[in-house]
Amino acid sequence: MIELTINGTRHRIDGDPAEPLLYVLRDDLGLYAAKFGCGLGQCGSCTVLVDGKPAQSCITPIAALEDRVVMTIEGLGSARTPGPVQQAFIDEQAAQCGYCIPGMIARAEALLRADPRPSEAAMRDAMRPSLCRCGTHMRILRAVRRAAVAMGGGIVDPAEPVS
């Protein structure tokens, strides 16, 4: 029996402690934002926040998450009341297929919590573990810049003007 705190709710999981969080989220808890992309820690589509830091849920066993605070992007807002990072992605229409975007949002959230005023290079570096096949990169970066401003910070040296 493992106790997990996810988006502020405690869950008791009666399963294999080695099971990665991703499958628990999707199979048991009906939380679909984190996506399966590779299961290998290479693509970032399963990214969630653990104690505010980005974590690839496909390779994070639930046993490692007791006493940790797990946040998925369901915890950041809803379609009706999106969180600031989600709102910035909506404002920039930063999605094509959108499959990678929940992971991107989680990563951006973690970045801006840790550093509300990152440099352009630090922003790109923070987003680097997440892959996007649709080439939505420019819009994703615009959304992160916009979110940084909306959250009271900003990008120190933005490569493009921020809306």
Partner: peptide
């Protein structure tokens, strides 16, 4: 016109065949 599919995709709705249950 903002795309209708974007807010649900960004907030965890079951948007893809991979999310079907």
């Amino acid at each position: 016109r903002p795309r209708r599919d974007i807010p649900p995709k960004l907030t965890g709705a079951a948007a893809y065949v991979q999310d079907m249950r």
